Amino acid sequence: MATSIALTGIPASTPAPSLLLTVEEAAKQLRIGRTQMYQLVMTGTVRSVLIGRLRRVPIECLREYVTDLMAAEASQKTVA
């Protein structure tokens, strides 16, 4: 039985990527602990949004955080 292919080239059975992640899901994406992720979110290091009483981390904010980490590391190498 063949899997149908959507117009984007992704199999139709593949779920769409989430735009918003729970803090726990964001921690798993970064492969860090839940407590450390909550600390990053609560200090504003990783931006998040509130939807009602639920805190969510936009996937773009995780990418932004990783980009900032890489830029900080690169600038430390040029100074040293």
Results as ranks from 00 to 15, higher is better:
residue 65 Y to R: 01
residue 24 E to F: 05
residue 55 R to H: 08
residue 72 A to K: 10
residue 56 R to I: 02
residue 25 E to I: 03
residue 8 T to L: 07
residue 32 I to E: 04
residue 71 A to N: 15
residue 63 R to N: 10
residue 15 P to D: 07
residue 46 V to C: 06
residue 63 R to A: 14
residue 64 E to N: 10
residue 9 G to C: 03
residue 56 R to W: 05
residue 3 T to P: 00
residue 34 R to F: 11
residue 42 M to R: 15
residue 61 C to R: 11
residue 9 G to L: 06
residue 29 Q to F: 11
residue 26 A to M: 03
residue 67 T to M: 14
residue 54 L to W: 04
residue 46 V to R: 02
residue 31 R to W: 04
residue 15 P to A: 04
residue 43 T to F: 07
residue 73 E to G: 15
residue 71 A to Y: 14
residue 7 L to Q: 10
residue 54 L to P: 00
residue 34 R to I: 08
residue 31 R to L: 09
residue 59 I to V: 15
residue 51 I to H: 09
residue 40 L to R: 07
residue 28 K to V: 13
residue 17 P to Q: 03
residue 58 P to Y: 02
residue 65 Y to H: 13
residue 24 E to C: 07
residue 13 S to R: 10
residue 11 P to R: 13
residue 75 S to I: 12
residue 37 M to C: 12
residue 11 P to D: 15
residue 25 E to A: 14
residue 35 T to A: 11
residue 14 T to I: 09
residue 40 L to D: 07
residue 16 A to Y: 06
residue 27 A to C: 04
residue 65 Y to M: 01
residue 73 E to M: 12
residue 15 P to Q: 06
residue 4 S to R: 12
residue 66 V to F: 03
residue 8 T to M: 06
residue 39 Q to S: 15
residue 7 L to D: 12
residue 25 E to M: 06
residue 49 V to R: 06
residue 64 E to W: 08
residue 52 G to E: 02
residue 50 L to N: 09
residue 31 R to N: 15
residue 67 T to W: 13
residue 17 P to D: 01
residue 28 K to I: 08
residue 56 R to F: 08
residue 24 E to S: 10
residue 33 G to Y: 02
residue 29 Q to M: 08
residue 26 A to G: 10
residue 66 V to H: 02
residue 72 A to E: 06
residue 46 V to N: 03
residue 16 A to Q: 12
residue 72 A to V: 08
residue 33 G to K: 01
residue 9 G to M: 05
residue 4 S to A: 14
residue 62 L to Q: 00
residue 41 V to P: 01
residue 50 L to W: 10
residue 48 S to F: 06
residue 18 S to T: 13
residue 42 M to F: 14
residue 39 Q to P: 01
residue 24 E to L: 08
residue 71 A to K: 15
residue 62 L to C: 04
residue 29 Q to L: 10
residue 26 A to E: 01
residue 46 V to S: 01
residue 43 T to M: 10
residue 18 S to D: 13
residue 43 T to H: 12
residue 56 R to P: 00
residue 44 G to D: 05
residue 13 S to W: 09
residue 20 L to R: 06
residue 61 C to I: 00
residue 69 L to S: 09
residue 67 T to D: 14
residue 19 L to I: 11
residue 27 A to L: 03
residue 15 P to K: 05
residue 56 R to N: 01
residue 30 L to F: 05
residue 30 L to Y: 05
residue 67 T to A: 15
residue 49 V to K: 05
residue 58 P to T: 04
residue 58 P to I: 05
residue 73 E to I: 12
residue 70 M to Y: 13
residue 55 R to M: 05
residue 22 T to D: 05
residue 38 Y to K: 10
residue 27 A to T: 03
residue 46 V to Q: 03
residue 32 I to N: 02
residue 62 L to S: 02
residue 25 E to D: 08
residue 72 A to R: 11
residue 40 L to F: 14
residue 59 I to R: 12
residue 44 G to I: 09
